[in-house]
Nucleic acid binder design. Structure first.
Length: 423
RNA sequence: GGAGAGGUGGCUGAGCGGUUGAAAGCGCCGGUCUUGAAAACCGGUGUGGGGCUUGUCUCCACCGUGAGUUCAAAUCUCACCCUCUCCGCCA
């Protein structure tokens, strides 16, 4: 959520941001609404003020044991006027609050404008492996080794669900442990294991609602949502809190399953493990002081990259253009890893700075020691990293001519010292 | 699922129709004292919003949330949410 005062004072900046994002939000209508709302507010506040004056006059009369009948009549008259305005005002105010939720964050100056094709590759690491045989895709590899069972997953739950078996399941667990250990032991994050069902408030403060309702699994009976990412419960840890300045920055990392309906994406990269309704992810979340947030974003990105470097997976980093930026983000890097079997780059991480956008929605503040004022923190998060697609890339990159899959060295301690998965 | 208790400022906690934006204590900030610190004492200390004359200015709102009663609500009524305790069930 943007600061209404900022929108009022900088309509051109907001208008440009909407244009850069190709967002159709009607800003002029919103500004007119805001003006009307404040006009009515002034009227109501004026009436309330005279009400308060009458009230204190009445108190004095009561003290002197004098008659207050006339004052009561005055009060009644004001109340009548107030009642007439109240309904109109709350209608305008509700509309204002609702509309405000639909305005996206302002993109940072450093990022490319316009269409997603303007996304800029800012880093490339590793090189694509040269094969002296024709590499298989992860589906063929997994089925041959019987470590992922797509058919039975579909029987149990439906299409685009995954059933890991045997060493496939073991590798999934090994990757989670490896990444959590890395972030907690080497990068300074505190491990969190949050609820995976959250209430509507939590979904609002991180910005998934109201805009992305269709993408969420919703349990209507209990008014709960399955989390699409650990970002939601972990960022909400400090919702409606005032943090101490000396406690910042706060770094959290969490493994959770993530649930996404992926509505409207049928047919797009839906083969195998590429786009599934439930996947595992280790997420990193930061709460920082505003002046540090862009340095923290670079560090966050490096923390995610470290995972891939240790696994020796070739990757590239994209700085997203305004047109590809998610609703709440001001700046975002995507990390893509190469999968040689399907010959595709797969997105396994988004590292974003939300500045105060989420903090304002979730009312997450800290007390600035110098000024004594409360300020919104900046929140950031990044995947470190998402699993299903990482597994695709590991299978395809580490495959052998005989169909076996070598286990990346850093994972071996997590898999009982095993070196490869073979028949 | 059943029964009960309760939600007040950073925290503990009083108030239960009209000098209550809210006692008291703790904490925090500043000062006195001290070589320094502690203690003691003195003073200060909520948030959000509106207005313009942008000021140690002014007005409004806020005691879980929302509605209602009233000239007037932290205080009365209703609904909802949340927390805790006991019983039941249970991995």
């Amino acid at each position: 959520m943007l600061d209404p005062k900022f929108i009022r004072e900088n309509p051109d900046i907001v208008r440009q941001a909407l244009k850069d994002r190709n967002d159709k939000f009607d800003l002029d209508k919103f500004i007119a609404l805001d003006e009307e709302r404040r006009k009515l507010m002034r009227q109501i506040e004026g009436l309330s003020a005279s009400q308060n004056i009458i009230d204190s006059e009445m108190k004095n009369l009561l003290k002197e044991k004098k008659d207050i009948k006339a004052k009561i009549e005055e009060g009644k008259a004001i109340k009548k006027q107030l009642n007439e305005l109240d309904g109109d005002f709350s209608k305008l105010d509700d509309e204002f609050t609702e509309q405000l939720q639909w305005i996206p964050n302002i993109p940072h100056v450093s990022i490319p404008r316009g269409h997603p094709s303007n996304n800029k590759v800012v880093k490339e690491w590793g090189s694509k492996r040269k094969f002296d045989f024709t590499p298989l895709d992860h589906i063929a590899l997994a089925e041959k080794l019987d470590i992922v069972d797509f058919k039975r997953a579909a029987k149990i739950s439906g299409s685009n669900f995954v059933l890991f078996k045997g060493l496939g399941a073991r590798m999934e667990r090994a990757l989670i442990n490896f990444m959590l250990d890395l972030h907690t032991q080497k990068h300074g994050y505190k491990e969190i294991f949050p609820p995976m069902l959250v209430n509507e408030n939590s979904m609002h403060s991180t910005g998934q609602l109201p805009k992305l309702r269709e993408d969420m699994y919703e349990l209507q009976k209990d008014e709960l949502f399955l989390i699409p990412t650990a970002e939601v419960p972990v960022t909400n840890i400090h919702r409606s809190e005032v943090l101490r300045e000396e406690d910042l920055p706060i770094y959290y990392t969490a493994y959770t399953a993530c649930f996404r309906r992926e509505a409207g994406s049928y047919g797009k990269d839906t083969k195998g493990l590429m786009r599934v309704h439930q996947f595992d992810k280790v997420e990193m979340v930061k709460f920082v002081k505003p002046e540090n947030s862009y340095d923290e974003l670079e560090k966050l990105l490096n923390n995610a990259c470290a995972v891939l470097e240790l696994l020796n997976i070739p990757y590239r980093v994209l700085m997203l253009a305004t047109g590809d930026l998610s609703f709440a983000a001001a700046k975002c890097y995507d990390i893509e890893i190469y999968a040689p079997g399907i010959d595709k780059w797969l997105e396994v991480s988004s590292c974003s700075n939300f500045e105060d956008f989420q903090a304002r929605r979730g009312d997450i503040r800290y007390k600035d020691k110098e000024t004594g004022k409360l300020k919104f923190v900046h929140t950031l998060n990044g995947s470190g990293v998402a699993l299903a697609r990482l597994v695709v890339s590991i299978f395809e990159n580490y495959q052998q001519a005989d169909g076996a899959i070598m286990i990346p060295e850093v994972l071996r301690p997590y898999m009982g010292g095993l070196e490869k998965i073979s028949l």
